Amino acid sequence: MKKIFQAVAAFLLVICMTAQSSQAQLKRFSIGPFVEAGFPTGDFSETNKTGYGIGIGADIKLVAGLTAVGSVSYFYFGGKSYTGPNGNSFDWADVKAIPIRLGLRYNLISILYVKLEGGTVQYAGGDYNGIGGLVAPGVGIRVLGLDVEGKYEAWFKDATRGFWGLKAGYNF
């Protein structure tokens, strides 16, 4: 166990040093694909299953540590089945959406960042139609082009649909 811990610590040290030395070589603009998973919370978890999404994101470095970010994706949350106490059953509707996010990312250290995004969500079909707003604070790690982020995202229209998300992507 001790050797595994030492190996992981050495690996993280090498990554931090590589990221630090390559910081000057990174471009000011990057774009790339990502995948994400959403785990519904509150009332949203009662009606829908875990969601999955795919999208493309871009970022532009503004000043030291501060970056403007944006993304567009397609998200799908399957509906759950419900059986009432009297034996009647029905299915909740699937949620299909296209979130468009804009925001700012701030690097706390070379590879660790915090991010705040806002934007709109276009519901695409089923019982959910129209446009709503969204907010998505998050924290992540970016090593060279690999970007992994944990976030909470909330969509606002008739009701709030919130979920914890995990996002992984690669920027070129």
Rank of each mutant, 00 (worst) to 15 (best):
Q6L: 15
A9C: 15
A9R: 12
A9Y: 11
A10L: 15
L13V: 10
L13T: 12
T18G: 15
A19M: 06
S22D: 13
Q23M: 09
Q23S: 15
K27Y: 08
V35I: 15
A37R: 12
P40I: 06
T41S: 07
T41K: 06
T41A: 13
D43K: 11
F44A: 05
F44L: 07
T47A: 14
N48F: 06
T50V: 15
Y52S: 13
G53P: 11
G55L: 03
A58G: 08
I60P: 00
G65N: 01
L66C: 00
L66A: 05
T67H: 06
V69G: 01
G70W: 02
V72M: 11
F77C: 08
S81Y: 09
S81A: 11
T83H: 00
N86R: 11
N86Q: 11
G87L: 06
S89I: 10
D91A: 13
D91F: 09
A93Y: 05
D94V: 03
D94K: 06
V95N: 02
K96E: 08
K96S: 10
L102A: 13
G103I: 01
L104A: 09
R105H: 01
Y106N: 04
N107C: 02
I109C: 08
I111E: 04
I111H: 03
K115Y: 05
E117A: 07
T120I: 13
T120A: 14
V121Y: 03
I131A: 08
G132S: 00
L134P: 00
A136C: 13
V139K: 08
G140F: 05
R142D: 06
R142N: 10
R142E: 08
D147Y: 06
D147L: 04
V148P: 03
E149R: 09
E149C: 09
D158N: 06
D158Q: 01
T160N: 07
F163Q: 12
F163D: 04
K167H: 15
Y170K: 11
